[in-house]
Design a protein around this nucleic acid. Structure first.
Lengths: 219, 219
DNA sequence: TTCGTTTGTTTGAGTTGTCAAGATGGTAAA
DNA sequence: TTTACCATCTTGACAACTCAAACAAACGAA
C-alpha cells in the first residue's frame, strides 16, 4: 500500500505528464507539491526502486504502468468524493477540492463503492473532470481551453478544480457545467474575453481564468 | 493541532480513565493502542509538556482539561461519523467503527457540521453511545452491563462498538438499540444469560458478550 | 567554445513515531 | 524486612519524510 505521501507524488506526476505518455521533471513536481527539489529527487529514487516511475536522473521521469494504475485510483477517489460532497452533502463546488484532497487518502474501498453506487456510477465530477472507472479507464473529451479558441458558440465542459476563488465566482454568477456560451471578442492582446450566456447576460474573463475553463464547440 | 497519533492517544486515555476523574497507566494505554510501553512513556512526556495530560512517572496519568476537550472532540467526530455511515450511507452498525476510526482524523470541521445538521443534531450514535455536543458535553446515562444485573425487564441502551463480530451477530438477529428484553436466568456460573425478547424469541449470550451490552431497568 | 544561469543531485541534519532491550523502581509475598 | 517480579523508564536505533546548502550537470547565448 502506498502511503498518502506517495499517493500524492503519483497524482502530481500524472497531472503533470498528462494522461498520455508525456514526461515531467523534478522541478515541476517540487513546485506542484511545494517541496524542495532535493526532496523530490529522493522520492523519485524510491518510487523508481518500487517500480512505480521511470526515472532517469537529470533526464526526466514518467509513470510506469503500476504507478499509473495507482495514480488513477487516487484520481478516481478524489473525483468521486468531490461529486459526493456536492451532490449528497450539499457543499459548493468551489470548496470541495481541499476536502477531497484529504479524504481521498482516508476512505476505504468499501465506502468508495457505496458512494459510487449511491451516485449511480457517475462519469464526471462537479468540475466536469472525468471519473476513472474501477479499472482506471476514463472517457476522454476533446475540450480545449477557452483561452485558445476563436469566436463562436461553445459548451463549457470543464473548469479546473484547483482555483476555488474562480469556482466561487462562477458559482455566484449561476454558472454551470454544460452551459452554452458565445465568445464574441477574443481580444487576447488586452487579455480579456467576453462571453454572452445562453440565458442572457455577459461575462468577462481574464486570460488567467479563461485558461482554466474548457469548452467544446457547439455545431 | 494535534496529529492523528496524538488524537488517538488522547482518545485512548479518555476511554481508559472513564468520563469521570479516573486515572490510567502506561501499560493500559500500550495494550489499548498495541504499542510498546516505552513508546507510550515517550509520548506521555510529550503530552505532558504540551499540557494535555497530567503525568507523574511511574504513578499514573490522567487528562488535563485541555486534553479532555481535545479527546471529546475526537469522540464527537467518531460518533457522528458512525451515525452518518449508518443512516446516510447505509452501512451496517457492525462495520462502521473501523471506518470512523480513520475518518475521524481526516474530516474537516465544516464537513462535520454539515453531517451534524443533516442528522438533526443527534445525541446518540448507532451503538447507543452519547455524542458530545460542540462543547464536549455528553448526556450521561445510567446504563449498566447486562452481565451485572439481576433478572427483570430492561431496555438495551448501548452496545460496545469495538466488537464487530458481536454487532454483526446482533444485527442478524434483528436486534436494535432501544429494544426491551427480559432477563430470566442469570446463570453466571455457567456464564450464559438467557433473554426473552419483547417481540418473542429467545437469545443466549455468553458472559463476554453480556459485558458489552448495556441496559437500563424498565419500570 | 566558453561562461553563466538554470536545473537537478548529494549530503547532513531534524522531526515524528516507533521498537528492542537493558536498567530501575514499587510492591506483594515470604 | 527482604526479595522477586512486574511495570515502567531509558537508551539507542530505525523508517519515513522533509529541508538547507553545497555541488554538479546541462543548456543557451555570446
Amino acid at each position: 500500500m502506498p502511503s498518502s505521501t506517495v499517493e500524492n507524488y503519483l497524482k502530481a506526476i500524472l497531472h503533470l505528464q498528462g494522461e498520455g505518455k508525456g514526461t515531467t521533471t523534478v522541478g515541476e513536481i517540487a513546485r506542484e507539491l511545494e517541496v524542495t527539489p532535493g526532496t523530490v529527487t529522493t522520492m523519485m529514487r524510491q518510487l523508481s526502486e518500487r517500480g512505480l516511475v521511470d526515472y532517469e536522473p537529470r533526464r526526466g521521469l514518467s509513470l510506469k504502468p503500476r504507478g499509473m494504475t495507482e495514480a488513477m485510483k487516487v484520481v478516481r477517489r478524489h473525483r468521486l468524493i468531490e461529486l459526493f460532497l456536492v451532490k449528497v452533502m450539499g457543499l459548493d463546488w468551489s470548496e470541495v477540492h481541499e476536502e477531497a484532497e484529504i479524504l481521498e487518502h482516508a476512505i476505504s474501498d468499501r465506502l468508495l463503492d457505496r458512494i459510487d453506487e449511491m451516485l449511480g456510477q457517475p462519469t464526471h465530477d462537479p468540475h466536469g473532470d472525468p471519473i476513472p472507472d474501477r479499472l482506471g479507464m476514463v472517457a476522454k473529451d476533446r475540450a480545449v481551453p477557452l483561452l485558445e479558441v476563436d469566436a463562436g458558440r461553445y459548451r463549457v465542459v470543464r473548469v479546473s478544480d484547483g482555483d476555488s476563488a474562480l469556482l466561487g465566482w462562477l458559482n455566484e454568477k449561476g454558472f454551470r457545467i454544460g452551459e452554452e456560451i458565445e465568445l464574441s471578442h477574443p481580444d487576447r492582446v488586452a487579455g480579456v474575453l467576453e462571453l454572452s450566456r445562453s440565458g442572457g447576460g455577459r461575462l468577462q474573463l481574464g486570460a488567467e481564468a479563461a485558461g482554466q475553463v474548457f469548452v467544446e464547440a457547439v455545431s
